[in-house]
Design a protein around this nucleic acid. Structure first.
Length: 254
DNA sequence: CAACGCGCCTGCTAGC
DNA sequence: TGCTAGCAGGCGCGTT
């Protein structure tokens, strides 16, 4: 499932391939995957050129020279891949065709994800973005910021708190498990019971696992693919995620 | 407000 | 062997 490192990897891949491309056509096989009206597509997408690509939490933002943007959330099984022979397939929900006839495929087996057109002026108030917590790899994300935002959820487990996108943006199941393991904090611990030292360790571990995974191109446990169709390497070496019953990588027990 | 349960989806799999 | 119930899981929404 794409989390922050996977989404960041996709963003970097898109920058290398589709900036400067002009959109000639769009097609979609599922309304929830691409909910915009034909009118907004005609007015703000067709004929528009891609100017910039960025990320906020797990949401990808593709800015167009029409003043609008495409936002994409990959949710569980989404992929954005560029001009690969093996697509489209039964999971392809949206196809953007560019002026040079190359294509960007938005594939999403389970249809939880979406791609939508939005006026750039409305993005900061868009519900899925407005309430997002800080970016964990930014300088402004200190351990004090983490603690201050987390303790509002004192009676939730620390795992549930870290998964809450309004506390911090971009964590999912894999990296939450990994970060808590490295910080030596049990995921079921109540957020309100954690010490300053534990918050410091969790903060450090979050940044460490996210940066390490970005360096390796993300995880590919389920459906995640990079823009060029290749897989990331992080899950070749997880500490805990998907390793139930296997030997501990630190002490060899169990 | 926080916390929690549900629904959205498809495909894999454990259990019969 | 073939069927089905259960599960995976981010996140918006309604309810408590």
């Amino acid at each position: 499932m794409p989390e922050l490192p996977e989404v960041e990897t996709v963003v970097r891949g898109l920058r290398d391939t589709i900036i400067g491309q002009t959109i000639a056509r769009v097609s979609s096989d599922w309304d929830n995957s691409f909910p915009n009206s034909d009118q907004s597509v005609a007015d703000y997408l067709i004929g528009a050129t891609i100017e910039r690509i960025s990320r906020r939490g797990k949401i990808i933002r593709i800015d167009l020279d029409s003043g609008w943007a495409l936002l994409v959330h990959l949710k569980m099984t989404g992929q954005l891949v560029y001009d690969l022979d093996r697509f489209p397939d039964s999971t392809t929900r949206v196809i953007l065709t560019f002026d040079d006839q190359t294509k960007l495929y938005f594939n999403d087996q389970r249809k939880f994800g979406w791609m939508r057109l939005i006026d750039q002026a409305l993005i900061s108030s868009f519900d899925g973005i407005q309430r997002l917590g800080p970016e964990p790899l930014s300088d402004r994300f200190t351990w004090e910021v983490l603690r201050e935002r987390a303790v509002r959820h004192a009676r939730s487990s620390i795992k549930a708190t870290l998964l809450n996108q309004t506390v911090l943006a971009g964590m999912g199941n894999i990296y939450t498990d990994e970060a808590l393991f490295l910080a030596k904090v049990h995921p079921a611990r109540l957020t309100g019971s954690l010490s300053e030292a534990e918050f410091r360790r969790i903060h450090q571990s979050i940044r460490q696992v996210l940066q390490h995974s970005i360096d390796l191109g993300g995880s590919s446990r389920q459906n995640y693919l990079m823009v060029d169709g290749s897989k990331g390497d992080y899950l070749d070496e997880p500490y805990v995620y998907g390793r139930q019953g296997q030997p501990c990588r630190v002490c060899d027990s169990r």
